[in-house]
Design a protein around this nucleic acid. Sequence first.
DNA 1: GCCCTATTAATTCCATTTGATGGATTATTC
DNA 2: GAATAATCCATCAAATGGAATTAATAGGGC
Lengths: 412, 412
Amino acid sequence: MLTGTNLKYARAHNLRIVLETIRLFGPLSRKEITERTELGLQTVSNITRKLLDADLILEADRLQEGRGAPTSLLNLNAQGAFSVGLDFDREHFTGVLVDFLGNVCQRVSHSVLFPTPENAVTLMADSVNKLIRCQGASRKRIWGVGVGLPGPLGISEGSVVTNVVNPSAFPGWDNVPIRDILAERLGLPVFIENNASAAAVGERWYGRGKHISNFFYLFFGVGLGGGLVLNGRPYDGHNGNAGEIGAIPTSSGRHMPTGLVNPHLGVFFSLPVLAKLLEREDVNISHPEELGDLFERKHEVVMDWLEEGIAQLAPFTLAIECLIDPGAIFLGGRYPEPVIRFIKDRLDEVLPTLRFEEKMAHPQLYCATVGEDATALGVATLPMYSSFAPIPEVLMKRPSNGPNESFISLNV
Amino acid sequence: MLTGTNLKYARAHNLRIVLETIRLFGPLSRKEITERTELGLQTVSNITRKLLDADLILEADRLQEGRGAPTSLLNLNAQGAFSVGLDFDREHFTGVLVDFLGNVCQRVSHSVLFPTPENAVTLMADSVNKLIRCQGASRKRIWGVGVGLPGPLGISEGSVVTNVVNPSAFPGWDNVPIRDILAERLGLPVFIENNASAAAVGERWYGRGKHISNFFYLFFGVGLGGGLVLNGRPYDGHNGNAGEIGAIPTSSGRHMPTGLVNPHLGVFFSLPVLAKLLEREDVNISHPEELGDLFERKHEVVMDWLEEGIAQLAPFTLAIECLIDPGAIFLGGRYPEPVIRFIKDRLDEVLPTLRFEEKMAHPQLYCATVGEDATALGVATLPMYSSFAPIPEVLMKRPSNGPNESFISLNV
DNA sequence: GCCCTATTAATTCCATTTGATGGATTATTC
DNA sequence: GAATAATCCATCAAATGGAATTAATAGGGC
């Protein structure tokens, strides 16, 4: 965006830098913050005072060690900021209220099938209000609402992301500007993201990704998705579709829907396809949880299906290694934890046999936080990220999203 | 790096922003710069005065149109900054002196075989001095020297990139800190990069990539390499190996060296492998140029070799599309231009048949600048980039590379 | 063992500096 | 005289250097 900067923006950036330093490495004394940020002692003192006044950080008990005045340690105030995450998928809906440290404070969950956009908005708005009420915290402490939707999203004019969910699966949802509708209804900033990217952001903000600045997130949901964090921040790509590993074309395989012309990787991790396979054996699954039961019993169809998926996935995992050279690859999503772990362990066995140079440095595979709440927690981080992450955009004039302004103009 | 900023750094950033705005969209009036950068008119006036004093920009004749005072347009001064690029490959050596606009002003070229590090340093230092002398421009206007080396590079302590060229092809070159040696010898900042990444930077700075902020660069050299530009700047990956598309494992093919265990994409674009194939037909090639002659004559072995390479490459080009979602894919390197064009055209035919969703947005393929000088020009941009690109690091304290300082502390 | 003082460390107060910015001014042409 | 481009001058915001303040302990004298 080639825009300049000035003192105001520099201040906003320094504020975020100090906050993030405390978040990642806290508790810290003002002195230690000085060393990490290269800011002057007075500057840190001024900034921390503002953060204390805003209740975003707390001064802990003083710590005496050796001579000199005792250090007073600063740490994040868990109650200083809250965010709401709504995970809205094909057959279920989960909402969570998370605090500044990423703890889930409140939670709602429903099974829903194909609601109309109007019903969905009502459901979301009601859930948000309920979650906020439970907390009892003032609405001022809620920094926004994140919404996770399956599949790719579209960008309409004004660079506002609106919802363009996969039309075949969600009739009536074509081109609904759900972000704006919900934002107006709630009077809060709303962020929309596909759930793979959101999970990656969540891992970056709260998880092991805190200290890894380049990673790929393999998301196992109803289909196969992916999210990227590069240079410490989410990377969306030119059309907002970066990480869409499921769309990569593959050789055809045994477990494919009949009549499919161009096989692609996503097919081998599609739960609907698995459901079709299981129907032949008179087994019904309609929810990712049920996959766990079958896996525990080592159901033949499921194990065979998994093995083929892993065989198809492995070469493209190596493509990720070579092309993106990430510091880690996370595996997560809505599959039950043991299934994710199985896929990871198998990949750990298979990949070394395929690598061209054994000795070459390669990324570690990790199981990410999984389960129903993982996605909701992921999207809940979007408002936090927008308000508090020390991204370069903060330093440039006219920051991309309006919501950023909130923290820039924090006059406390 | 989580470091803060202050007025000095903000100034350095604004200086670069103004310069880059002129470079990309010039000639511009101060007023127009104001609008693009969101800086105040006085600020722009001050900054442009500094740039004029430093001879980095020029004030063109005034332009009168309609009422009001006539606009005086500002543009880059081609003679304001020079940079040297040295492309140092297995069988040849090219050196160029480029001006601020990317024009090649001087050029030297040698055929050399396996020089020792000492001889190489002497050759490079002599060439640099010769190139500079030819120009007659003062040494002060030379902002640095870029060196391109084949294959992956290593990072030693102190985060200084030192040379660790593929040891089998370059005996005696293991762990030579060539950057430091050359920098001391010349008294100029030296930048080392593998030639695929350098070509990508060159395309970003001078080429069509000027206005594309995410792209992949497919580099056809002695082997197959790649470079990435993401969010407007080079992306190196966690181990500095991002873009190494040649290392991706593939199915085995017809044209492979005997006894190879793990086939990988690079094998199908290896000129030594092609040379072996041609030996059977009593044809010798030792230089990429000669590939062009055979291609012109549609030599059967070459065409067959190319077709297999393209078939192997195509699925991974789609992997790039899906995983990275770039705005463009450039094809370039040391292959003769008609060969590159042929590969591009064939890919343009093949890719649509493989894509899972036809309608989905996909990146355009482009032929990049090619030929011997392309790489040299690519590495020559590294000093320019380091000194003038408005990268976020400029705003953070303690910028990663020392050389950046030069422009930050420009007291003009 | 107790008290007083020197020492060390953490933080804050005050004056200075730097660079962006708003308003008035100058210059140039229609 | 009106309109536009660019500059001069005064102001302002935020980082910063140096002195001052506060708080604790170590150590020596008694």
